[in-house]
Amino acid sequence: MSKMHVKFTLNGEEVEGLAEPRTLLIHFLRENLRITGPHIGCETSHCGACTVDMDGKSVKSCTVFVAQANGADVTTIEGLTNPDGTLSVIQEMFREHHGLQCGYCTPGMITRVHRLLQEHPSPTEEDVRFGIAGNLCRCTGYQNIVKAVLAAADQLNAQKEAAE
């Protein structure tokens, strides 16, 4: 089967390449573009380790063909650090509150939380748990992830207020 030319925005920059339409977005990111932040956990749409942000939606990149992402605006964990390379507020709060142990789910988790906090800037604990229900963590029991997300929301809101 012939390859198609794909082109999309990745972390603010245009990327392109040749791929068979059946190539999954996660494989294109990791193998063609060497963007290895999004992980392959289950590869069956369950675990959320491969979560990326696509056109303002959190999506499981193991369940999207690269052909479908043609022309899209994609952000991965690599695009979520501060411009100077330091940790973003969400990343810093995961570190501070021990919101990870082995770290395998963390890139997908933080990419999901990034979108969740855009949509719910002041979430309740229940909002957080419901909002990250598509991301599995087998280490933490989620308690410290929830703490980290709530702390990140507080800090982002405080920053916003200070800027106004």
């Binding site: 939606k57 959190s58 229900a133 598509g134």
Partner: peptide, 9 residues
């Protein structure tokens, strides 16, 4: 239905 990521798509 499913989870947040699935509901976006």
């Amino acid at each position: 239905i499913a989870d947040p990521q699935v509901r976006y798509m």
